[in-house]
């Protein structure tokens, strides 16, 4: 009796299926519950990986509800890569369509935020952008920069930054009923979230796409007359959000 790896795998993720014949215990009888060791290892190890990777979602749902969600998600979306630290990319979309949690509208964005933190943590190192190239009015207009590899931008129709802060920072105020854009940066090793003022995210995206400082500013001002370049630039420089334009694009 041969046991193919596909039949082993089928039984692994579906506890309703019988243990494949041809797997034995110590005395030649059927393996029975011994097969459950593998079933448990897979579900538990992947659920733990998700719990580590999605601290905000876990905090919002509570440990028990998160474990239930993870059990369902792991079976529906097993990892497609051995890089378990990036496992769960499908969770935001899964949450959007997952009936029992659909009523928590902001949950998918919270999962996106957790993912962005993790991607930022493992992103390539890059020297921060040198602001001295901005000296002189023409030079400042013509300069270019890119987002550092560890920088992530998130648009949300929810008060995502306030929700993150309420759950992750002691004594934080209640979320306001507004849409919020967030920038994740990694000044050294620990990713940090920054709430972006209106227009900032557009300016940063334009810049990353290759526009000069001047072009990006003009484009954002045309649709958002209150955009404050100084404020955005200060945020970007103090958080090491930018790197030299010639740094390899991520």
């Amino acid at each position: 009796m041969t046991v193919s790896q596909s039949s082993f795998r089928e039984a692994l993720l579906d506890a309703e299926r019988p243990v494949p014949a041809g797997l034995n215990n110590a005395v030649g009888g059927p393996a029975g519950a011994r097969f459950s060791v593998y079933r448990n290892n897979v579900i538990v190890s992947l659920s733990e990986a998700l719990a580590t990777a999605f601290p905000l979602v876990r905090k919002l749902l509570g440990t028990e509800a998160f474990a239930q969600l993870a059990g369902v998600f792991v079976r529906a979306h097993p990892p497609d890569s051995p890089l378990i630290m990036f496992y769960g990319e499908a969770l935001p979309d899964f949450l959007r369509d997952f009936e029992p949690l659909k009523h928590i509208g902001y949950l998918p964005d919270c999962a996106r935020l957790d993912l962005a933190f993790r991607q930022s943590y493992h992103a390539a190192d890059a020297p921060p952008f040198d602001p001295s190239v901005l000296q002189g009015e023409d030079a400042g207009q013509m300069a270019r920069a890119r987002l550092a590899p560890a920088t992530r931008l998130l648009r949300s129709k929810w008060p995502l930054h306030d929700i993150w802060r309420l759950n992750m920072v002691p004594d934080a105020p209640k979320p306001r009923a507004i849409a919020q854009d967030i920038m994740i940066t990694r000044p050294e090793f620990d990713p940090q979230p920054t709430l972006l003022p209106p227009g900032s995210i557009d300016w940063l995206e334009r810049l990353h796409a290759g526009a000069t400082f001047g072009e990006a500013t003009d484009m954002v001002l045309s649709s958002n007359p209150t955009f404050d370049l100084t404020e955005t630039l200060t945020l970007a420089l103090t958080t090491h959000a930018l790197t030299d334009y010639t740094t390899k694009e991520r």
Partner: peptide
């Protein structure tokens, strides 16, 4: 051991005959 089947990674060290 094996851990990948098709496009899926099982995150466990699975046995082989």
């Amino acid at each position: 051991a094996w851990s990948t089947h098709g496009a899926e990674f099982m995150n466990d060290l699975l046995p082989l005959p």
